[in-house]
């Protein structure tokens, strides 16, 4: 069986599941950089479980992951990651309980004829503009993240960077690009967002005493 070892984690790969690549390594580095001991972390679309596995091999954190692909869920579990099969956030109550939520979205602009067969399509297909799952993520993530919690989102130069910044602000995040790397045909970056605490904002403007 093929496996990848990265930052103390040994992750087994399997057919029909996205094989960790440059994007996964970059997001794993960012996640390790911002996670702290004791945090409750959720990873959406974990694939092989690579990022979660790297995280829990290096830090004492409470990690939960989801994926829609049954082979990915099995693979991530075999890699020691607590995983449930779910479509994005749909199986969670809207309780703001996570300290950090991490997402390496499918971001390739994909037309009907570009789709790959089977479950693996979920790893690549970002809809016609590549933004479909990024938009869904940003709309829903504030319901599950505690105030001042952190999101880390992998973004490619294939995607409209300015639009992502705008959507993050709209969703109540203070956004910043924290890691960037140029590759042969694209530039990859990690967006960090901190969910602004509305009660604090209201307190400072004098609405709550």
């Amino acid at each position: 069986m093929v496996s990848i070892t990265y930052r103390k984690a040994c992750v087994k790969l399997t057919d029909d599941v996205y094989e960790p690549a440059e994007d996964s390594f970059l997001l794993a580095d960012a996640t390790l950089g911002y996670a702290k001991e004791g945090m409750k972390v959720l990873e959406i679309g974990t694939g092989t479980g690579f990022i979660s596995a790297v995280l829990q091999s290096n830090l004492d954190v409470d990690v939960l992951a989801t994926d829609i692909n049954p082979y990915a869920v099995r693979c991530a579990c075999d890699n020691g990651v607590r995983t449930i099969r779910a479509d994005m956030f749909s199986a969670f109550k809207p309780v703001q309980c996570f300290d950090m939520i991490v997402f390496n979205p499918p971001y390739l602009p994909t037309l009907e004829e570009d789709k790959v067969p089977g479950w693996l399509n979920y790893a690549f297909d970002g809809g016609v503009d590549g933004m479909r799952f990024i938009c869904m993520f940003l709309e829903n993530v504030p319901l599950h993240l505690r105030p001042n919690g952190i999101i880390l989102l992998l973004v490619s130069s294939f995607t409209e960077i300015e639009k992502i910044k705008f959507l993050m602000e709209e969703a109540g995040f203070e956004s910043q690009i924290v890691l960037k790397e140029k590759y042969f045909f694209e530039e990859l970056m990690v967006f960090k967002g901190i969910l602004k605490d509305k009660t604090e904002k209201m307190k400072s403007s004098g609405n709550i005493t």
Binding site: I68, V73, R74, C77, T83, I84, R85, A86, D87, S90, A91
Partner: peptide, 12 residues
């Protein structure tokens, strides 16, 4: 099943 909750709606 096998420790994994399947939280997809039946049609998915």
């Amino acid at each position: 099943d096998d420790g994994i909750p399947n939280m997809l709606p039946p049609q998915l």
